[in-house]
């Protein structure tokens, strides 16, 4: 078993984690990174984590189990208005008890802790130096820091603390170009492994939803379409994940959304008619890792939002064009 886990093959590695292999830690930093991604998918865990991004902080309860290779996950907001997201693999069911509505969606590329990235480790290594840091004691577990240093300034650096036994990320930090922590996820309590019951991932609202409304539109939209738009200047390593049209509140027409990722960081480019009233000036904001850049482009309004430095958002936003 030990030699199998040390093997390079992705499939073997995944199998090792699925079996709860604790025989040995991965040989190198990329192995640790790969195992962290696999553990978020294949391990069973339940706990509470705090997410702080710039000026926002939220507390989320998460329960995750893997049954016959299928992921079952439930997340529940512990502050603010109640909602719950139950996810089975990429299918998301979002329960809004106040609106008595179930909103269906399909996970596209969004960051969800502890599954912060789903790209293979070697794809991430094209844009980041992956190194191992020290071991820290967190919540009664030992975790080893994985340090992702970007090759250039067009993305942030990332720190992941991967639990030594399972590989699960129990703490994550994103650092600005200046080296300050701007986004952080950290478990405040965590159960790992067989103590997590399968019944815990059932929606607490599911029994009541017979009277509820089902909103399937977001899921339809997530299937993706050809928006007719493209981005001509992308930082090295970024590739298009998908493009779709999303209905945003208060808009008569759907907005085109193109999603790009370097395997870890992602950004969305939105294109919509610029009108009523027409925006004439550029504007931007940065809060935590969330960068926002809006720019009028003829009859259109281009908006870039993502976990990237402002210069990256500007570069991308200025190079939106009709696909030839």
């Amino acid at each position: 078993m030990k030699s199998a886990v040390r093997g390079r093959s992705l499939a073997v590695l995944a199998l090792g984690v699925a079996c709860g292999a604790q025989a040995g830690a991965p040989a190198d930093a990329l192995g640790w990174l790969q195992r962290a991604a696999e553990a978020a998918r294949n391990a069973s865990y339940a706990g509470t984590f705090v997410h702080s991004n710039g000026e926002r902080t939220s507390t989320i309860r998460i329960t995750h189990v893997s049954v016959n290779g299928d992921e079952h996950e439930r997340i529940e907001a512990l502050d603010g208005p109640p909602y719950e997201i139950v996810r089975r693999n990429e299918e998301m069911f979002c329960y809004f008890p106040d609106a008595k509505t179930v909103r269906l969606d399909r996970r596209v590329n969004a960051r969800f802790f502890p599954s912060l990235f789903r790209a293979p480790a070697d794809v991430i290594a094209h844009s980041y130096d992956v190194k191992l840091g020290n071991v820290e004691h967190v919540l009664g577990y030992d975790c080893r820091w994985i340090r992702l240093e970007p090759h250039d300034t067009s993305r942030f650096s990332e720190r992941l603390c991967s639990e030594v036994g399972s590989g699960l990320v129990v703490r994550a930090k994103t650092l600005s170009v200046q080296g300050q922590v701007i986004e952080q996820y950290t478990f405040t309590d965590l159960k790992l492994g067989p103590q997590v019951a399968r019944g815990d991932v059932k929606s607490i609202f599911e029994a009541r939803v017979k009277q509820w409304i089902t909103d399937a539109q977001p899921r339809e939209e997530a299937k993706g379409v050809d928006t007719g738009w493209t981005v001509t200047s992308l930082p090295q390593g970024f590739e298009k994940v998908t493009e779709l049209r999303r209905t945003l509140p208060g808009r008569p027409h759907p907005v085109s959304q193109l999603i790009y990722s370097d395997g870890l960081a992602s950004l969305s480019v939105f294109v919509e008619p610029n009108g009523a009233p027409t925006r004439t000036a550029e504007a931007s904001s940065e809060d935590g890792t969330t960068t926002f850049f809006v720019r009028p482009m003829g009859e259109q309004l281009v908006t870039v939002l993502g976990e990237v430095p402002l210069a990256t958002a500007e570069l991308v936003g200025r190079s939106v064009a009709h696909r030839p």
Binding site: G80, Y83, T101, R103, A110, I213, L267
Partner: peptide, 15 residues
């Protein structure tokens, strides 16, 4: 739309 975490107070009911 980017993070795919819909907030209840922003969500518009289907009606």
């Amino acid at each position: 739309a980017h993070r795919q975490v819909p907030t209840p107070d922003l969500y518009r009911p289907v009606t």
